[in-house]
Simulated assay, not measured.
Amino acid sequence: MKQVNFKGVNLPAIGIGTWHMGDNLKTYAQEKATILYGLNHGATVIDTAEMYGEGNAETLVGDVLQEFDRQKVFLISKFYPQNATKERMKQALNNSLKRLKTDYLDLYLLHWRGSVPLSETVAGVIDLQKEGKIRHWGVSNFDTADLEELYGLPQGDQVFANEDLYNLANRGIEYDLLPWQRSRQLPLIAYAPIDQGDSRGQKLTQNSVVQKIADVHQVTPMQILLAWTIQSEDVMAIPQTSSIEHMKQNIEAGEIILSDSEMQQIDLQFPGPDSKQPLQMI
């Protein structure tokens, strides 16, 4: 699978999202098998959060990690904004680590901004780093102004990644946020990289150009959408699926290289932003 370079760390361009997973006992075994399939086939980044099912997704991932070499997994979790103080962050992390059945995270993200000053949050994650409980720290759902504020703080520029909504139907961050991050070598993790909702009244997968390009590559339109998201060298996508077949397709999408002509054809159908857009979140 295509690799991305995250501040000197080589990672697969396609990881595994876990939102809405771990909540249903009837599908638990299938979800566990799907994540294991992904890990065994190169999708060795798992993204979860204490918010997902109020810990259920982390518990699922913890069970998965009992059957795979923990050291080969790049494990990401996130903490609530209300847990962004030093003391609450430490407790939140300990709770997450207990559910995940591990003693460290590779990346710990502030899930979105709240009322806790960023300076306190940065000081807290750096303390956790010094304790060896997290290897890296980062943020999620941050816009350009948020990152500018972060970089203005002592050690704020040590942020490892920003995780935002990004897909063909939601390209707003291309106007200013992505260029800002690229100028500082700050990688992007794209959540919801396959948008199945309507875009200007037409589903992305039903677009004739997307379908035509998919036919040329002998893949599904969904795989083209995912491949589009990771065409840059500094964007990782974390699609979520509970299906082994879809997991297989996600991983295969990590091998698809779209030509300049194909990217231009897609751009004509779904143009990028020509002005600043409000940061989209789901």
Rank of each mutant, 00 (worst) to 15 (best):
N5R: 09
N10V: 13
L11R: 03
L11S: 00
P12Q: 02
I16M: 12
H20W: 12
M21C: 06
D23E: 15
N24A: 14
T27F: 07
E31Q: 11
T34L: 00
L39S: 01
N40R: 15
E50A: 10
M51C: 07
L60S: 06
L60E: 08
V61A: 10
Q66P: 10
E67V: 08
F68H: 13
F68V: 14
F68K: 12
K72S: 14
V73M: 06
K78Y: 06
K78P: 06
Q82P: 03
A84M: 03
T85W: 06
K86N: 08
N94F: 11
N95T: 13
K98M: 13
D106F: 06
L107H: 09
L109E: 00
S115Q: 14
L118F: 00
G124E: 03
V125Y: 12
D127Y: 12
Q129A: 09
K133T: 14
I134Y: 05
R135S: 15
H136A: 14
W137P: 05
D146S: 14
L147G: 04
E149H: 00
E149D: 04
G152N: 10
L153K: 01
P154A: 05
Q155K: 15
V159K: 04
F160V: 04
F160G: 08
N162T: 01
L165D: 01
Y166N: 07
L168S: 08
L168A: 03
N170E: 15
I173K: 05
Y175Q: 09
W180M: 15
W180T: 15
Q181D: 09
Q185D: 15
L186I: 09
I189R: 11
I189Q: 13
Y191N: 12
A192P: 03
P193D: 01
P193M: 04
D195V: 00
Q196M: 12
S199I: 01
K203Y: 13
K203C: 00
K203T: 06
A214E: 00
H217P: 03
H217W: 01
H217C: 09
Q218W: 04
V219H: 01
I224N: 03
W228E: 01
D234V: 09
V235A: 00
T241K: 01
S242A: 14
I244P: 00
M247V: 00
M247R: 06
N250L: 06
G254R: 05
E255R: 05
S261M: 11
Q264C: 10
I266D: 02
G272M: 09
G272K: 13
K276L: 15
M281Y: 09
I282W: 12
